[in-house]
Design a protein around this nucleic acid. Structure first.
Lengths: 126, 126
DNA sequence: ATAATCTGCAACTCAGCAGTTGCAGATTGG
DNA sequence: CCAATCTGCAACTGCTGAGTTGCAGATTAT
């Protein structure tokens, strides 16, 4: 037996370009530990420049800038230019999109379990 | 000027091996779109084997197995062997750890904004 | 027993991303 | 004006992770 017939076609009728209604870049941005620490710092210290942030991190300023760009692309940060420096700030509403998906999965699973319990345990004799 | 004095030392006194109190593997597991779709499927269809899942995905069974392993390592899935097949199920409690961090950052930022508004707007003249 | 399934391990390829260095443009301060 | 500072762009390196193929062991069905 060679080659195992794997790689079937999808059963769901989602179009290929809309595989899920989930904020893709958001999770991607949150995946990196350094990016999460940056979000952490900014949320604590308030609007701050890349150079100032980099002073507190073990990586170069350029690396920090790339991470901030990723976070901005995901809509988690906003950047405003003040004079010669650029201050980054948190956009809190965007975080809810991530939690929404997590809650959805969790709730769906809870519903499954609840339905299962309901099905397995008939009402006690009165 | 060559070399820019970047790469400063951390200002926080966190030890290096405990950079953050955040579920690292969880975010790492949630970073991949395929893994999120797998979680999605399992939460909808209930306990299911890797082979069955792979039939609905455009990748090989092995790839699915690797993703399921990552999700299990993160504590998001549990696996039970029934006969010759292994059924994967969602562990919903673990998802709350991820949402907890997101909520923390969001709430902290909201507090900052609230304090700022409080400070900038003195009580109106009576 | 034998064929069909399902799982698991190992080695390999390949693209992407984190991080780096180097330099040039723009802005503030003395 | 000149020096210091902050930002931005581009090219390069290195590693990790997603996905693959190939095969072997275990379990069920005929």
């Amino acid at each position: 037996m060679r080659g195992e017939v794997q790689r079937g076609e999808l059963r769901h009728d989602r179009p290929d370009d809309v595989p899920e209604e989930v904020p893709d870049e958001v999770f991607d941005a949150l995946a990196d530990p350094t990016r999460r620490r940056l979000l952490d710092e900014i949320s604590s210290r308030g609007p701050i420049s890349a150079t100032h942030l980099a002073a507190g991190f073990p990586v170069t300023r350029q690396a920090v800038v790339k991470h901030l760009s990723a976070l901005s692309t995901a809509g988690l940060l906003s950047s405003d230019r003040h004079g010669r420096e650029v201050l980054y700030a948190v956009v809190p509403g965007r975080l809810q999109q991530a939690t929404a998906w997590l809650d959805d999965v969790g709730r769906r699973w809870d519903d499954r379990l609840a339905a299962l319990v309901e099905h397995l345990s008939p009402p006690p004799p009165a």
